[in-house]
């Protein structure tokens, strides 16, 4: 009889590996394309605004913009990874191959979210690398950069799991993406400091958790931000815990996966 090696963590590691391999096999679409999109944003906005706008007193607009673009791309791609993988698997029916094995819902959640974070980090790193030749950028507090990148990716990865499980068709997922994720990221201060907004819109921005992800992430580069990085960390941390709890509760109930 051929020898087989069994390990408790192999199931989780395999699902994570499969999810990473899935986006890596089509990296032209899943990594390169979003990097190109962000680069186009950077080039267009820098051409139009760089000489006219400074932020936090002396920071050039393009320098301000790049971390925002990095985080926006990271967040959107983390969401896209788990949501698209799950809805494709549900619609084609091959989700059964993940549901039949002895994987726990915790392993299921961790594998999909970590794969999403990894795709987000790949895309974010790509945007940063292609943007750096065009801007002057400092890295004041790298640890803050990393913490917000990881937490932001995990939040959007969790939202992607929720959306992927909830949506029964691509149209519903597109609705979730276009009417919730996209407005929240675009109105989160990626392209501007909220101090440049009227008071009303500053207050509205504070109700948007995405604003705190971008602002905290940007603090890691400049050592300056619209609100305290500790406040951002608290909002982002609590958001992650709540979303993780919600996602795990859905998975534990078998919502739309185990009828």
């Amino acid at each position: 009889m051929p020898e087989m090696r069994e390990s408790a963590l192999t199931g989780f590691r395999t699902l994570l590996y499969k999810e990473v391999l899935r986006f890596w096999k089509v990296s032209f679409q899943t990594v390169m394309a979003p990097v190109l999109n962000a680069l186009l944003f950077l080039l267009i906005f820098s051409h139009v605004l760089d000489r006219h706008v400074t932020v936090y007193g002396e920071i050039a607009y393009t320098s301000f913009l790049l971390p925002g673009l990095v985080m926006m791309s990271l967040l959107q791609n983390a969401f896209a990874n788990s949501s698209s993988s799950l809805i494709q698997s549900k619609i084609t029916g091959n989700i059964i191959f993940v549901l039949l094995p002895p994987l726990s819902w915790g392993e299921f959640y961790a594998a999909y979210v970590i794969a999403s974070v990894l795709r987000g980090l790949f895309v974010g790193a790509g945007v940063l690398l292609v943007g750096l030749p065009f801007v002057e950028l400092s890295f004041a507090y790298p640890l803050w950069i990393l913490v917000f990148a990881l937490l932001g990716g995990a939040i959007l990865g969790s939202l992607g799991v929720i959306a992927g499980i909830w949506a029964d068709k691509f149209d519903q997922l597109a609705g979730f993406q276009n009417f919730l994720i996209l407005p929240l990221t675009m109105l989160s201060g990626v392209f501007y400091s909220i101090h440049s907004l009227p008071q009303l819109w500053q207050d509205v921005s504070h109700a948007n958790p995405f604003f705190f992800m971008i602002d905290g992430f940007r603090y890691g580069f400049f050592g300056q931000s619209d609100v305290s990085p500790w406040l951002s960390l608290a909002v982002v941390g609590v958001s992650f815990v709540l979303l993780a709890a919600l996602t795990l509760a859905m998975l534990a109930r078998g919502y739309k996966l185990r009828a």
Binding site: P2, S7, T10, G11, T14, F97, V98
Partner: peptide, 15 residues
């Protein structure tokens, strides 16, 4: 191989 891994099995190529 992936399906083997889901069931916690590595090195399953002979089977």
């Amino acid at each position: 191989r992936i399906q083997s891994g889901y069931f916690g099995i590595r090195g399953n190529d002979d089977w």
